[in-house]
Design a protein around this nucleic acid. Sequence first.
RNA 1: GCCUCCAUAGCUCAGUUGGUUAGAGCACCUGACUGUUAAUCAGGGUGUCCGAGGUUCAAGUCCUCGUGGGGGCGCCA
Length: 479
Amino acid sequence: MKRTEIKEILQCTKYGTFINVKGWVRTKRASKNVAFIALNDGSTIKNIQLVVEMNPENDKILNHIHTGAALSVDGLLQESVGSGQKVDVFTKNIEVLGEANPDEYPLQPKKHSLEFLREKAHLRFRTNTFSGIARIRHSMIFGVHKFFTERGFYNIHTPIITGSDAEGAGEMFQVTTLNLSDVPKTENGEVDYKNDFFGKVANLTVSGQLEGELAALALSKIYTFGPTFRAENSNTSRHLSEFWMIEPEMAFYDLEDNMNLAEEMLKYLLKYALDNCRDDLDFLSKRLLDEEKNKKAEERSMELIEKLKFVLDNPFARVTYTEAIDILLKSKPNKKKRFQYVIKGWGDDLQSEHERYLVEKHFKRPVILTDYPASIKAFYMKQNNDGKTVRAMDVLFPQIGEIIGGSQREDNYNKLYNRIKELEISEKSMWWYLETRKFGSVPHSGFGLGFERMIQFVTGMNNIRDVIPFPRTPQNLEF
RNA sequence: GCCUCCAUAGCUCAGUUGGUUAGAGCACCUGACUGUUAAUCAGGGUGUCCGAGGUUCAAGUCCUCGUGGGGGCGCCA
């Protein structure tokens, strides 16, 4: 018989229909005359209730059914007598596809700690929390493509392996086929990369931006959505060594256009989640309330759905770096030296405690900071006429901090060339990038959105390792 | 990379100033129960107290090192 997915069954009112349902057991309850099994197949966070009549045959089968077992069940769809659900399935034939020995199966019908589940990443999809996150993550992926497609952007696949060592976004993972226990050397004693696979040093990409710019300077509006690799020794709840990044790049966009697009996209995605993932968000909201019930009232975060709606309904604050420094200099924690790093004046880099103050205490909503000092930003950013700032923008979210980093790009050949020289970046490896400023150069802008940070915000998960199925972090490569 | 905290039953955790045989809830097994909602009630026994050293008459408890994990900071998305 053809299988019907639980999501569909729960909406069906054709009582008396004979159906087949397959899935994994969440809980089993038995009494003298009847047993109940909550079955889940991942099509929705909701379970279907199986009603099993107690007879010698079923009794035998029930002994093999525990939390985690996989079943294929034929039965009658019926209006539920119980109050917890509208429909259930009165079983006629139960096949145990795969048992789950309760002495060994680690998941129970109870709350597990996220830390415990992180070490059981191969099984954690089978929990409400992680299946919910996976469904939301999918919706967000789809939402990203939908958003850009609706606006005439083209998706570009930028390379994963790069020969450019000047992307400047951080430490890189080297890619090599050289025998590391017998590395070929040149006469000078240096590694002879001529013998390596590509004949030169190769790394995993830290950003698709530079290649994205090349495409934007022909197709006008493009975006990338791919994996990104950073070999930084970062040990925080918002860093991964391997993560997914969305990088739109637009010709003829200035910083203002760039900010508008960023804000529009973030709100589009939030609305998409609210419109399409309500069941999962409701569950995650309850989870968060439960997790924070022991916290003091002032330390608790806003209820999840309320928070998403709040961000959706309010314009982001937009301030320049210079204005932000003024606000911070006048702030209580700075005057009373409550900040670990006290702001002394213009030119200081903003630490996460300062960003958090601006977002959570001062503006109480997402903040877009612009026009940072050139000295603390990347070489490719458009230089302002003041000679000291660049057209950069960071979008800061509560709890997560920087969710987007972007800028208008320097389109003037000489200015870009001089900046590259100043920072002693190898101009040889950047020849192709520089050429775009030589031929038909136009103002253009773009940004990078950390996909997992966005998922963190939408799901309310505190640790980024819980919003990607198989997190890669320093000293951690299990699964 | 730096700073901190934690590790006791399959899971979540309690275990007093170091002191006799190591404790609870859940899960599991048995029984009861007229349809339950993480069912309920009664009974059953969980163990390398993370590992290796050390201090002590005596270590789950104190010390050192190691391993694993959490949180914070930096770098960033």
